[in-house]
């Protein structure tokens, strides 16, 4: 199966573990990811705060660059996924906006017909296109005994509700169960990781992060699995600061769900970007799943 692939800026550096594990797992699963040539930043939430039409045009350039033969694009980052999907949807529903965005694209010699590229998060691709049989067939090291909290965050499941439930999503839970993991009940699975708030108000951000870590600790999770670079960054890189702020002792590794797929497929930790997380994950993986 062939997909246009939009990695997004985070995967270049800060979420390199996501990039490595997505590519390794896609190879094992036979998913052909064709990177959009010369893609640009989706603008995250910041561009929309400044200028809506320009934000849309910046995003639409990526859709216009997709090889029409692909017909669908997949993004592993929740914010990239949302922005690509949002602009495609806005253009479909608001002809005046479509016209202006295409006028802007034309200044760069491009055009985009809304609806011509289907935008999908990687979680959906693995859940629906690969499916249970496809995933289970590749499992060499079942994650038996590993207790995982499946964390979806916000923008994978909201505001677009056509792939999973916005309040009680289950697709990542299911995928992890296919790998043999013990998925814990995690009622805050769609609560916010605080997004960019770490940059604006730390007390506000740290409290949101604390709730996620606290709940996982209460449920005795060994690791939290996520599907977004921002979520990983906030829960992993800021975990030490959160501990300092609240005088807590959280020690929860935060992994991308693709890293856990890779472990179960018997891939080597380095291929999957292990060691890049600030809260080390390898000790608990070795203890629960065994050495690679």
């Amino acid at each position: 199966m062939k997909y246009a692939f939009y990695p997004g800026c985070s995967l270049e550096v800060n979420a390199a573990a996501y990039d490595l594990s997505v590519k390794a797992v896609a190879k094992t699963l036979g998913l052909e990811l064709v990177e959009v040539d010369d893609w640009n930043c989706c603008g995250a939430t910041e561009y929309f705060s400044q200028d809506e039409l320009t934000a849309c045009a910046v995003i639409a350039r990526n859709l216009a660059l997709v090889d029409p033969a692909c017909g669908q694009i997949t993004a592993p980052c929740a914010a990239c996924f949302l922005n690509l999907k949002k602009v495609d949807r806005l253009m479909s529903e608001h002809p005046d906006l479509d016209q202006k965005i295409n006028q802007a694209l034309a200044a760069g010699g491009l055009k985009y017909r809304p609806g011509s590229v289907q935008v999908r998060h990687l979680l959906e691709v693995i859940y629906k296109d690969v499916g249970e049989e496809g995933v289970k067939a590749r499992v060499k090291r079942p994650l038996t005994g590993l207790r995982v909290a499946a964390y979806y965050g916000c923008q994978v499941v909201r505001p677009f509700k056509d792939f999973d439930d916005p309040e009680q999503p289950t697709t990542m839970d299911e995928i992890l169960k296919w790998l043999g993991a013990e998925v814990v009940d995690y009622p805050v699975k769609t609560h916010c990781c605080s997004g960019h708030m770490t940059q604006i108000s730390e007390p506000e951000a740290f409290e949101m992060i604390r709730r996620l870590l606290y709940c996982a600790q209460q449920r005795e999770a060994d690791v939290i699995a996520c599907a977004c670079p921002m979520c990983q960054l906030n829960m992993d890189a800021y975990q030490g600061r959160v501990n300092g702020f609240f005088n807590t002792n959280f020690n929860l590794p935060i992994l991308y769900f693709t890293q856990l797929l890779g472990v179960a497929f018997g891939l080597q930790p380095r291929e999957l970007g292990f060691g890049k997380e600030l809260v080390a994950a390898e000790p608990v993986i070795a203890a629960k799943v065994g050495a690679a």
């Binding site: 640009n40 760069g108 491009l110």
Partner: peptide, 12 residues
């Protein structure tokens, strides 16, 4: 990209 951005700013 900059040509697209400039045009979008002008239109908006």
């Amino acid at each position: 990209l900059q040509a697209i951005i400039n045009k979008a700013r002008e239109l908006g």
